[in-house]
């Protein structure tokens, strides 16, 4: 179903207002230096996160007003009615007041309507089916990394998600083990990855940049180290990237020293490299792994030193890591590391 201009998009237009609306919080955040954070929920760079900020702002103002009201009355009462110890009479024994009770039952109803109405409409808007032509991404939570499959482009990568600017994205969240949650605060907000189910996040990114994401559902040992990044790039850059990722590695890879060492160290049992006979599907695909900026669920920067550190003992970097310590010799590591880096 095609909607010419979704209410979501029109609401996104008023996002400037919403950012002003969370100013009280933002002020606090600035005090503590949160402004550097690219995990911050105070900034939205997609239609979805901007419309969330809208409601966030409304509630923040209402909450602030109620907070001042209640604490104000409390403080005034404590100052004004503090016993002096010289009272000779009891205070008036007021048992209640029906009109007041009715008043403060109805007033919250009206206030809550101000929150409930935009909330319910955004729930339905944001969970509407993706449009035709949306980019489909199959995101699968693993212990402890993210697998990203692009069925329309026929390739698979890990922990690094490139998406085009201005094109709707339909992320299909799954898991084949425990429950994880996909949380990229500025772009995609959050949904759970639940075994046996497929959840959707649909959104359109509106600013080029690199955004952080992290698993938000406790999933045991390395839950804290289960991260990913989203690269929002122009359509041309995205198409170029996708095309490169979908191309198998060159035929010559098979014959290289590095590949033989890779095979000899039994890496092939778990990892796949398209264009070779390494077709393991337990660990992340290593096709074009050299082109990724980071590895190990986005915990380590992709460079020689870090790759060596990782291959020496994966569990030392990520506790409980499913990749065993293969007790590789320095010689093996020195051959495999440049090989992995060469898989551009």
């Amino acid at each position: 179903m095609r909607i010419p201009r979704s209410p979501l998009a029109s609401r996104a237009a008023s996002a400037g207002r919403s950012i002003a609306a969370v100013l009280p919080w933002l002020g606090l955040a600035l005090l503590t230096g949160c402004n550097e954070s690219t995990m911050s929920t105070f900034e939205g760079h997609s239609d979805l996160t901007k419309s969330i900020l809208d409601i966030y702002g409304t509630i923040t103002w209402i909450d602030t007003a109620l907070f001042i009201l209640v604490q104000g009355v409390l403080i005034v009462a404590v100052i004004k009615f503090r016993a002096t110890g010289k009272e000779t009479e009891l205070p008036e024994q007021v048992h209640g007041n029906l009109p007041m009770e009715i008043g403060w039952t109805i007033a919250p109803v009206l206030i809550l309507m101000m929150i409930a109405i935009p909330t319910v409409s955004l729930i339905f808007d944001s969970q509407a089916q993706a449009k035709d032509g949306a980019l489909i991404v199959n995101a699968t939570g693993k212990q402890w990394w993210f697998q990203f499959g692009f069925p329309q482009y026929n390739f698979e990568t890990a922990n690094e998600l490139h998406i085009p600017l201005g094109r709707q994205v339909d992320i299909r969240l799954q898991s084949d083990n425990v429950i994880h949650a996909f949380w990229a605060p500025q772009i995609a907000a959050k949904r759970d990855m639940i075994p046996g189910r497929v959840n959707h996040i649909t959104f359109t990114a509106d600013k080029i940049g690199e955004y952080l994401g992290q698993c938000a559902e406790y999933c045991q040992d390395s839950h804290a180290l289960m991260k990913f990044r989203i690269e929002v790039e122009s359509s041309e850059d995205f198409e170029k990237w996708a095309k490169a990722q979908a191309t198998p590695q060159a035929d010559t890879v098979d014959d290289s020293e590095g590949y033989k060492a890779f095979q000899g160290a039994t890496c092939v049992a778990c990892h796949a490299i398209d264009g070779t006979n390494a077709q393991g599907h337990i660990g992340p695909s290593l096709t074009h792994v050299g082109s990724r900026k980071r590895f190990a669920a986005s915990v380590l920067e992709m460079n020689e030193a870090n790759l060596k550190l990782w291959l020496k003992d994966p569990s030392a970097v990520k506790p409980g890591c499913k990749m065993p310590n293969l007790k590789l010799t320095d010689e093996q590591i020195n051959t495999i590391v440049p090989f992995l880096q060469s898989l551009k």
Binding site: L28, E36, S37, A224
Partner: peptide, 21 residues
Amino acid sequence: HIVGAAGMPRRIYTYDAGLGW
């Protein structure tokens, strides 16, 4: 409240510097 709004998830045993946390 602040660190949560700055994107810090619960139940993590460690976190990186540089996120304002």
